[in-house]
Design a protein around this nucleic acid. Structure first.
Length: 357
DNA sequence: TTGTGCGAAAACCTATTCTC
DNA sequence: GAGAATAGGTTTTCGCACAA
């Protein structure tokens, strides 16, 4: 590191140290120290500024170029993060940017390619004027035809993500309740229900415990299984995870993964139908089932994703309109499924995407 | 550009075994 | 006895090459 680089680092650190505390005003002393350090930085960096002025062909506009360079140094100090780079490196790019910007403001495009086609490079700032000559933010002149659709889709997607997340939570909670209930019913080992110390008559060989407590080890196993099932549901039902990949990641066979997924889809369908919380999904189900196509004779039977896929075109919204994950979540009640010959299942977004494509 | 054949991969189903 | 896990076979889907 050169002496100049070290000195610059120290001076910038000095400026940063003399910044006003958050919410407070800079004191006179701090302002004085800042000004002195800034002047010293400019002095140290002057050779480099001269070099850039010449390099960018701005000798004829020397004073303007020096002003622009001073602004660049000021900006560099404001934005400088010592952990990311040396100040020398950082300030170089700031000065280059200002020099380039000044050159475009002062001159027409000098490039040969621009001359060939008689093109003119125009600063974005020059666009910031309305038809009646009034100044306006140039950002206001930029039109994006897809902005509305993109915004709506992003907002809907966000809500849909929350909805699917809530549904998975509900399903896992359901599994937990069922699992705990089963653990309570399960007969305990004799050791576990042996007399507890302090009993009045602990001479009696054995008795039932006062409370049906769940074995913590069993509970931990249950939680582990719930975590695994959540991953499977998230990746298989609501994402593009394959049976093979999930089997590898969870240590189960792909067939077991498929069975877990199948059961999860069915249970979640029932949860959607029975809970007011998921009314939106249930409403969508009704609308979708009304226009659903009957399955062909050769299609596989209930719950088969291939059958779901077959019914999907009729269930899906217009692919050209903004859509999201919620619109691809299709829950079909058991009765309706029998009537319509539709599978009792949730639609698989991955499959939907494939089919829609 | 469209239709067809083929092979690989993925998904599915049924029956059976294992574990608690 | 019920649920979890496995085995073995079938069906469906997808990508690719090739010919018309």
């Amino acid at each position: 590191m050169s002496k100049t680089t070290i000195a610059l680092e120290a001076l910038v650190a000095d400026v940063i140290a003399n910044r006003a505390a958050e919410g407070a005003k800079q004191t006179a002393r701090q302002r004085l120290n800042t000004d002195r350090a800034f002047a010293s930085i400019l002095k140290l960096i002057a050779p480099r500024i001269r070099h850039f002025i010449r390099q960018y062909g701005l000798v004829a506009h020397w004073e303007d170029a020096e002003q622009a360079a001073a602004i660049a140094v000021h900006r560099a100090i404001e934005a400088y993060d010592p952990e990311k780079a040396q100040f020398t490196t950082f300030v170089n790019w700031q000065i280059r940017g200002e020099m380039q910007s000044l050159r475009f403001r002062l001159m027409t495009d000098q490039r040969s390619s621009a001359k060939k086609v008689e093109a003119l490079t125009v600063s974005l700032q020059d666009l910031g004027r309305s038809q009646d000559g009034e100044d306006m933010a140039f950002e206001a002149t930029i039109e994006d035809e897809d902005a509305l659709d993109a915004t709506e889709a992003a907002a809907s997607d966000y809500l849909a993500q929350n909805a699917t997340g809530a549904l998975i939570d509900e399903y896992i909670e359901h599994l937990r309740a069922v699992g705990i209930e089963q653990l309570k019913k399960r007969p305990r080992a004799k050791k576990a229900i042996a007399n507890q110390p302090g009993d009045i008559n602990d001479q009696i060989p054995s008795r039932r415990p006062r409370f049906r407590e769940v074995d913590p080890v069993e509970l931990a196993k249950l939680e582990e299984k719930l975590t695994r099932n959540r991953e499977i549901v998230e990746r298989r039902v609501f994402d593009t995870g394959t049976l093979d990949a999930l089997g590898l990641d969870t240590g189960l066979t792909k067939e077991r993964v498929r069975q877990i997924t199948k059961r999860a889809a069915k249970t979640m369908g029932e949860l959607v139908a029975s809970s007011a919380k998921f009314q939106v999904m249930a409403d969508y189900k009704v609308a979708a089932a009304t226009g659903a196509r009957p399955r062909t004779a050769s299609a596989p039977t209930a719950e088969a994703p291939s059958a779901i896929i077959e019914a999907l075109p009729a269930l899906l919204p217009d692919p050209s309109s903004p859509h999201n994950r919620l619109t691809s979540l299709v829950a079909i009640g058991q009765e309706a499924a029998v009537e319509q010959e539709q599978p009792v299942s949730l639609g698989l977004p991955s499959e939907i995407a494939r089919k829609a494509a």
